[in-house]
C-alpha cells in the first residue's frame, strides 16, 4: 500500500458523519483543550488520538466531535494553548469548511496572572486579560495591570 492510500484509509476508519475535527493540537494540551471546551461534560460521541507524528508540532493530538459545531468565541478560548489548531467542519462525511483559531482581544479565565501579589492569585476570582500582543503572546491583567508574557504563562 502506498503512503497516500494508508493515509486515506486511516481517515476513513475514524471519519465522522457530521461534526467537528480539531487537528494540530499540541499533544500535551489535549486534556486542557477537552476541559476548556467542556467536552468532558457533553454526551456527543467523541474520539481522540494523541502522540501522533506531526512535522510541525512534534507530537500532536486530534479530537473528533460528532454532531457538534463550535461558535468562534467558544473555539478561540483554546487559542492560548493550541494556537495552531485547525478545525474541519464535517457535513455528511465531507469537509465543508476549514477554520483556524484566533487569539481573542480579551481572555477570561484560562490563564493565570504571573504576579503572585495579584488579587486573582489570592482570592477566588476569574482572571481577565487584555491581549496586548499576539505573537509572542502578552497579556495585561485587568486587575493588577501587570503583563504576563508567553514564557510566564500558566494555564489554570
Amino acid at each position: 500500500m502506498t503512503e497516500n492510500n494508508k493515509k486515506k484509509l486511516k481517515l476513513k476508519v475514524s471519519a465522522i458523519k457530521n461534526g467537528t475535527v480539531i487537528d494540530h493540537i499540541p499533544a500535551k494540551s489535549l486534556f486542557k483543550v477537552i476541559t476548556i471546551l467542556g467536552l468532558d461534560k457533553i454526551s456527543n460521541q467523541i474520539t481522540f488520538g494523541t502522540n501522533l507524528e506531526s512535522g510541525k508540532l512534534g507530537h500532536k493530538a486530534i479530537i473528533k466531535v460528532s454532531d457538534k459545531y463550535f461558535k468562534d468565541e467558544e473555539i478561540d478560548k483554546i487559542a492560548l494553548i493550541a494556537p495552531h489548531a485547525k478545525l474541519n467542519i464535517i457535513k455528511d462525511y465531507e469537509v465543508v469548511e476549514k477554520r483556524v483559531v484566533e487569539i481573542p482581544e480579551t481572555i477570561k479565565g484560562i490563564a493565570k496572572c504571573f504576579n503572585p501579589k495579584c488579587i486573582t492569585n489570592n482570592e477566588k476570582i476569574n482572571t481577565c486579560f487584555k491581549v496586548i500582543s499576539k505573537n509572542p503572546i502578552a497579556l495585561k491583567c485587568h486587575y493588577c495591570e501587570k503583563i504576563t508574557n508567553e514564557n510566564q504563562m500558566v494555564i489554570k
Binding site: 496572572c113 495579584c118 488579587i119 486587575y143 493588577c144
Partner: peptide
C-alpha cells in the same frame, strides 16, 4: 488601601 495588586479594581 490593600496590599494586594488589583484588589481595588476587584
Amino acid at each position: 488601601r490593600h496590599p494586594l495588586e488589583g484588589s481595588a479594581r476587584y
